[in-house]
């Protein structure tokens, strides 16, 4: 299977820089998968699981939120706002964040705050889900 160069960089550092066979993630509009030879493509990243296929059948999984995905002829560049490999997720912290977000939604101080808490809840649930996939 053809490979392409994939870079995943977030403000927290470099998460991936090398060849990959397939990249699947959730854009604001739905799930997308990128294979080698994709046309130049630009989209905004939503909140969802990100899978990177390198060798073998099992992908590396990560929780990926926000930012942009830019596919060029030279390679694929993913710049998420936050990115965490499944093995690095702190499940306890994610549970705590989920609980905090639920409390906030139950008694919001303002509409903006409620919206923010809902996004935080989504993120926490994603992290819990992705953490659950690790062995």
């Amino acid at each position: 299977m053809a490979e392409f160069h994939l870079k995943i960089l977030s403000p927290d550092g470099v998460f991936f820089d090398g060849s990959a066979k397939q990249l699947s993630l959730r854009s604001v509009d739905g799930d997308v998968s990128i294979l080698a030879g994709h046309i130049p493509y630009l989209t905004a990243v939503g909140i969802g699981e990100c899978r990177v296929y390198t060798d073998g059948d099992e992908p590396r999984r990560a929780a990926c939120c926000g930012g942009l995905l830019n596919v060029t002829r030279e390679g694929v560049f993913l710049a998420p706002t936050t990115f965490e490999w499944a093995e690095n997720i702190d499940s306890d912290r994610a549970e705590a964040a989920k609980q905090k977000a639920l409390d906030r939604i139950a008694s919001p101080k303002s509409d903006a705050q409620k919206k923010l808490a809902q996004i935080k809840l989504q993120r926490a649930e994603l992290r819990i889900k992705v953490a659950g996939t690790r062995k």
Binding site: S27, Y41, L42, T43, T72
Partner: peptide, 22 residues
């Protein structure tokens, strides 16, 4: 260069530009 932008240019830019500025 030609670049395909999905779902739509407006929506994508309004969402990624604040992130990029940050």
């Amino acid at each position: 260069k030609f670049t395909l932008v999905e779902p739509g240019a407006g929506a994508v830019f309004n969402s990624i530009i604040p992130d990029a500025v940050a």
